[in-house]
Design a protein around this nucleic acid. Structure first.
Length: 573
RNA sequence: GCGCUCGUAGCUCAGCUGGAUAGAGCACUAGACUACGAAUCUAGGGGUCGGGAGUUCGAAUCUUCCCGAGCGCGCCA
């Protein structure tokens, strides 16, 4: 039993008791009452906000209610003192044994410590990366990849049934351009001289290999054909080649998708028409003329009547067109179909990880999912800000026009997947992030990956030197402030998981790991100045045993948290 | 013009969905080394949380209006 859950359960009993006695009304809602570690350690071991949260409902003054509750809480097992402070905080001090009991839970659970069942086995679909199949993943894609993947690990750790999904935009104009670009390289492979790649086509050298491979497989059969004859096979070949590259890049990053969904298959299977029929039936569509956007009117704007989705009924700023002037579907309408497909397949919630450049797309997608599902909050969209690649503080130059950009593969080869996975989570996802090659491989406090891994390596080092672990230890004797500070940090892990999972914010795990590492490094160094604080003591086998278990628990929690991020812990640096 | 994401220490950023005297790291100052028990740690100075108004016991957090930055705004995806 988690110490916080213990007090929450005790509080539940106390409030029921008070309700029964008529001291507080039956209707009082205690769901916002929390027991937590106070920010300031001088405020005791555990703080409770109940008096402030419930004062209005109970029609009592916060301090008065606090007095009442404090009296009851003082009677709970292990409580040594209860104070009331500030506007009505109830600060509880407990016997150290309550903390060491938690330590035993950690050791019993191993790296499963922190897991919870909030998801209750329900399905959630996370769509991320979904880069166009027109080239290798570039560095900016890595952030979305890591965010989505960490989120997936986090939600699994919280009891959700997670599907990791990549949406392949293999229909539409971009892949036609790809096909034309590859066709040029194909001609080149067959001996024709290509001076310059015409503007509008993909100039990247990575397409040369694709042209060569196409020539090797199919020979010169497309040479004399008209475009409408070669376009389909060349396009398919190119898309397959690009997706093979992208999958390899993802594997290098440690990302393994469960599902790759094809836009082309969706469209050809009639899913768009089906989705539109569905919206039509439910009365969400109409034909109308859109106002041009104010302030920035496109030069070629022509008012025209078109099929529109009534997105404004679901909070969007304007209604959204579903059909292009040439009669084809807009990207939005195939995306509507795709989200309907995901809703039906998943039978649960959806999460999309988008780049910031798709920010303007969020409202209409939320609107569409609400219209399709008939429910709010079925879709959460995480926007991923830009990554600035740096080398010793200076931006890395990239020339898009020449087609040479820094790829995910380049970065993985330079610094390793573990470093990328961690560093990408050292900022909130909606904050821009500087990724400095030099700094992220530095072996110092400046580099959070190193700092965390080093803490784990130090734990391993101690355990190595100790040899075998003592079978039993009296953990109740771990009572020094620095020890208790570390234990409290360890005990926080399950709550971090819950908070990060419910807010869909995996960066909290990275920050937690840094805090935990800091608490451990601090305790470690304390032993330097004061030999009595060392983990292994020649003259005190009992304390040594207890401290070894503390070290073991620390390593366990670090490993558990790194596991969620799919980063292996290291035993040596 | 409208919308989205932001604005927190000199710099880079957290802030547990409204809680206590707003926290870290870097840098700066002063200290601690028998190197996997110094790749680290301890202590110190440093703030009008962009600005105004509002909501309430209580606001960095919620509402609203300004200022500033980035992104987006039918027939690209």
């Amino acid at each position: 039993m988690n110490i916080f859950n213990f007090f929450e359960a005790e509080f539940q009993a106390i409030s029921n008791d008070l309700k029964g006695a008529g001291t507080i009304p039956e209707t009082v809602d205690v769901s916002k009452v929390v027991f937590e570690l106070p920010r300031n350690a001088t405020h005791g071991d555990i703080a409770c906000n109940a008096a402030m949260v419930l004062a209005k409902q109970a029609k009592m003054k916060p301090r008065e209610l606090a007095e009442l509750l404090a009296g009851r809480l003082a009677g709970c097992d292990g409580v040594t003192r209860v104070d009331i402070a500030g506007p009505g905080f109830i600060n509880i001090n407990v016997e150290p044994r309550l903390w060491s009991a938690e330590l035993r839970c950690i050791l019993a659970a191993g790296t499963q410590y922190g897991r919870n069942d909030r998801g209750a086995g329900k399905s959630v679909n996370i769509e991320y990366v979904s880069a166009n199949p027109t080239g290798p993943l570039h560095a900016a894609h890595a952030r979305g990849a890591v965010l989505g993947d960490a989120l997936a690990g986090l939600l699994e750790f919280s009891g959700w049934k997670v599907t990791r999904e990549y949406y392949v935009n293999d229909a539409g104009g971009q892949v036609d351009i790809l096909a034309h670009s590859v066709y040029l390289r194909y001609l080149e492979a067959l001996g024709e001289t290509i001076d310059t790649i015409p503007p509008g086509l993909y100039p990247g050298a990575y397409l040369k290999d694709v042209g060569v491979a196409l020539a090797a497989r199919d020979g010169d059969r497309y040479l004399a054909l008209d475009e409408d004859k070669w376009l389909n096979p060349v396009r398919q070949f190119a898309i397959d080649a690009m997706m093979a590259i992208i999958r390899k890049d993802l594997v290098k990053l440690g990302v393994e998708m469960d599902v790759f969904s094809s836009e082309k298959a969706l469209v050809e299977g009639g899913a768009v028409q089906a989705a539109i029929d569905r919206l039509q039936q439910d009365g969400h569509l109409y034909c109308g003329v859109l106002e041009p956007p104010k302030g920035k009117e496109p030069e070629d704007w022509e008012p025209r009547e078109q099929l529109l989705f009534r997105a404004t009924a679901f909070g969007d700023d304007t209604d959204r067109p579903l059909q292009k002037s040439d009669g084809g579907w807009t990207y939005f309408s195939s995306d509507v179909a795709y989200h309907l497909d995901k809703l039906e397949r998943t039978g649960g919630r959806l999460i999309n990880v988008f780049g910031v450049d798709h920010g303007g797309y969020v409202k209409r997608m939320m609107a569409a999912v609400e219209a399709l599902s008939g429910r709010k909050n079925m879709l959460d969209i995480k926007l991923c800000q830009l990554v600035n690649l740096m080398e010793n503080g200076k931006p890395v130059k990239m020339s898009k026009r020449a087609g040479n950009f820094v790829t995910v593969r380049d970065v993985v080869n330079a610094v390793g997947a573990d470093v990328i996975r961690f560093i990408m989570l050292t900022r909130r996802s909606d904050q821009t992030l500087d990724f400095d090659y030099a700094k992220v491989t530095e072996q110092s406090r400046d580099n959070p990956v190193f700092y965390v891994q080093y803490a784990h390596a130090r734990c391993s080092s101690v355990l190595r030197q100790a040899g075998t672990m003592p079978d039993e230890a009296n953990l109740d004797i771990l009572t020094m402030p620095a020890e208790l500070a570390l234990i409290k940090q360890l005990v926080s892990w399950p709550r971090i998981v819950v908070a990060a999972a419910t807010t869909h914010e995996p960066h909290r795990i990275a920050f937690y790991l840094m805090d935990l590492a800091s608490a451990f490094h601090s305790l470690w160094t304390a032993g330097r100045g004061n030999p009595a604080l060392r983990f292994m003591l020649d003259d005190d086998a009992e304390l040594t045993a207890a401290r070894l278990w503390l070290v073991k628990a620390t390593a366990t929690v670090i490993r558990s948290a790194l596991n969620v991020l799919a980063i292996p812990a290291r035993d040596e640096m």
